[in-house]
Simulated scan of single mutants.
Amino acid sequence: MNDAPYGRLAYDFSIVGCQKSGTSTLSGTISQHRLVCRPPRKEAHFFNNEEYDWAHPDYERDYTAPKRSQVHAMVGDSTPVYIMWPGALERMHAYKPDMPLIAVFRDPIERLFSHWTMLRTRHPDWPDWSGFIHEFRPSTLPESIPTDVSAMRYKHLSGVARGYYGAQLERGLSIFPREQWLLLEFRELLADYDRTIDRVTDFLGLPRFEQLPPLRNRYAGAALVSGTAPVAQEIADLAELYADDLALFAQISGIDTSAWPTSRILAGELEPGELADRFAARVAPHPAG
């Protein structure tokens, strides 16, 4: 049976990161454009598949999507682990050297906490906050996946590593030229949604939406999760961990990070305890017994 009466489309743009920074909101909006085909699933997880035969890739078989309408001209992948996964962007470059790439960035500690609450919402048995931020706690972006854990566990628990935006972008720019990147900021995406989506359609060479779909903050996570809330010292330590990389990111991205809580903590404008208290409002203590 032919599951693609209109044929198939090769993936020709990618939202590569960062997780918990509005990628689902962005991909959900762009997939409603009349010329853009909605993919079978938001995250293809193709280029971070460590079991794939990368010596003999069959892109036509393994990295295409069924065209849903005659008018559809492009389809995009939105797998936010790509930007930090060792080897993923290199594999993508081998597939399509002129691939347009979109990345959305968010304060690294806010992103980390959102990552943890997402995991606790889906899997209450995943590590509590302290375990989550310490199980994999590299001092910079890893060049390879740890050999003593499964790729799947690393994908879920690599929360700290995903916050090294400077190293991720520096590596990304060494693989794809700057003109192929559109760099966005999470708060601006939500606060200036219309202009941001215009930037995206312009970047992809699409006509702008005649009527923009309403903003939907997709997969925001549960309002309350069970666990142990972050404390001030943990927040302060994370800010110091990210300090050098955050400075690098601000320099090479051109994104103003001065209002990010991590930047404000490092500048002495925000007490770590204030951010910890804000996070604690979303954490319910473990039930007694």
Rank of each mutant, 00 (worst) to 15 (best):
T79P: 03
W126K: 14
Q32I: 03
W129T: 00
L275V: 07
D277N: 15
D12S: 15
F209S: 03
D107E: 08
Y165H: 11
A4N: 12
G22P: 08
M92N: 02
A247L: 13
D62M: 09
L35D: 09
H286N: 14
P213S: 08
L189T: 01
S144L: 10
P40L: 15
V81A: 13
E170Y: 05
E143S: 12
A223E: 14
V231M: 09
E185P: 01
E135L: 14
N2R: 14
A247W: 03
D245N: 06
A280E: 04
L238H: 04
L112C: 07
D128M: 08
V283K: 00
L9E: 02
R187N: 15
L248P: 01
R187Q: 14
A288N: 10
S21Y: 03
P66C: 10
R187I: 06
L173V: 02
R8I: 05
K42N: 06
P287V: 01
Y154E: 09
S78M: 12
A267W: 07
K67M: 10
H286D: 11
Q32V: 01
F136D: 00
D58P: 02
Y82S: 06
H156R: 13
N2W: 07
A73I: 04
S24A: 13
Q211A: 13
G17D: 06
L189G: 00
D237Y: 06
L248D: 00
L35N: 03
R278H: 08
Q32C: 11
